[in-house]
């Protein structure tokens, strides 16, 4: 459901700040906010031993001010988060992994995640488009796995490119 009035831009900005807070819980991630509408809101650089590695991934940030749908047992139905055709076209040209973060501001700022361009070690040339719109709840463990997956993909890519 579209957000209404001036609050929509405020929600978008707040969501970016939430994503920045979430990502910088890891001290090996440096987050750059991108001013243009490129389909990516945040460009995240991976560091090793305090130095930037050249490995990057993008994050598109979305949010809702509507309460999420709850199941009878109190759990939340995992949201489906889509992106527009225009955004898809822009993202498909990219060669870095891109994640989507989704924040539910009426549910304690709970965060959800899905891949847009997933780094698949079997396809090291470029990350593959993920058409599964179902997001999963973001946790610290999941963030660790995401970063690990990205780093591993770059490792494989480096070996393949060198061969």
């Amino acid at each position: 459901m579209p957000e209404t009035g001036g609050i929509a831009s405020m929600i978008g900005y707040r969501a970016e700040q939430l994503a920045l807070v979430l990502l910088t819980r890891r001290d090996d991630l440096v987050v750059h906010q991108l001013p243009t509408d490129s389909g990516i809101d945040l460009l995240v650089a991976l560091r090793k031993d305090g130095k930037e590695t050249g490995r990057q991934f993008g994050v598109q940030v979305k949010a809702t001010a509507q309460p999420l749908t709850h199941q009878h047992n109190g759990g939340v139905i995992l949201p489906r988060v889509s992106v527009s055709q225009t955004t898809q076209q822009r993202l498909r040209d990219l060669t870095i992994p891109v994640a989507l973060f989704y924040f539910a501001m009426r549910d304690g700022d709970r965060a959800y995640f899905r891949w847009l361009l997933e780094p698949d070690p079997a396809v090291p040339a470029a990350p593959r488009w993920n058409s599964n719109e179902r997001a999963v709840e973001m946790t610290s463990d999941l963030l660790d796995k995401i970063v690990e997956q990205i780093d591993h993909w770059y490792d494989v890519r480096q070996v393949r490119l060198a061969a």
Partner: peptide
């Protein structure tokens, strides 16, 4: 990094949806 993270946290903490209309 600490400064940027601190400013983002400040903005997030101040704009929690406390009311039915928002922050």
């Amino acid at each position: 990094v600490i400064g940027t993270r601190g400013e983002a946290l400040f903005e997030v903490l101040m704009t929690v949806f406390d009311t039915t209309t928002g922050p």
